[in-house]
Amino acid sequence: MRRPDQSMTLLTGFMERPLDPSYAAAADAREAAGMPRGTSSRTPLVVITAVLLGLLFSVAAATLNRSLPGTATAREELAAQVAASQAAADRRRAAVQQTQAEIDRVRAAQLATANQGALTQEVAALELRADAVAVTGPGMVLTLDDAPGGADSADGDPRTGAQADGKVLARDVQLAVNGLWAAGAEAVAVNGQRLSARSAIRFAGDAILVNYRPLARPYVISAIGDPGRLPADFAEGPGGSYVQALADSFGVQVSTKRSESLTLPAAHITTELAEPTGAPTGAAGKASLSPNPTPEDPS
């Protein structure tokens, strides 16, 4: 007779007879031989197997809990390499600054012995205009930060995608900085990175790069300028309205603060030797500030 659930013999089989049939078969065999159905559960064979089982459990638990050793080592090695590279870069930056200071000192001494007071003043004025010296003065601080609940957490609203919109982009920083320049700022730095004529505010992936250095949020834009007019001019200008729109539409955290004394570091100005390519014209071939007359205009 055909069983109604014959098509499911596999399932019914292991639901109804989960025990190894070999236990029952062995019991029947022992009974037929005139022995009790079951053996003792204390035979050496059972004890050895029990020890093996315990060993398997604890070894598996220990091994699977431990993170794979190869990954950890690789991570540590990479972290050490990054730290070493950063340290080397910091050392070289310090050496560059030291050499720069020495050049300035030697040049000043040279000009002083040559009795070129006017030239000294001109060099100082040019350095100031080229953003090559640290400056201090009153101004304003504009702070941009991602919208709350944005980049750091994954629990933003998935329907509105608020976390993607509330992120400060390189373009936002560019337009804010341009607004500050337009409002009469004399020197601008973003998170301590002084902007010079050769600076760029770019993005790489999600990170904002200024002077090729990645910045971490919040983005603090310090601008030196007339403290009486700069904040108002910025707020009324295109930069101010753009920033306001960011805050209103996307929840970007914007705060403006007047400051009596800001100190901005010197920009890193590299000098390059210009070589004449064709017919020599005029005074080409001198060492000079590399020609890059167009100021940054990212807008």
């Binding site: 025990l19 236990y23 019991a27 559960s41 059972v46």
Partner: peptide
């Protein structure tokens, strides 16, 4: 292990079967 415990309770435990099944 659970199969063996059940077999013990059923009274049909067999050490060789236990080791082989493990």
């Amino acid at each position: 292990v659970f199969g063996a415990v059940r077999a013990v309770l059923d009274g049909i435990f067999n050490d060789k079967v236990f080791v082989v099944s493990f």
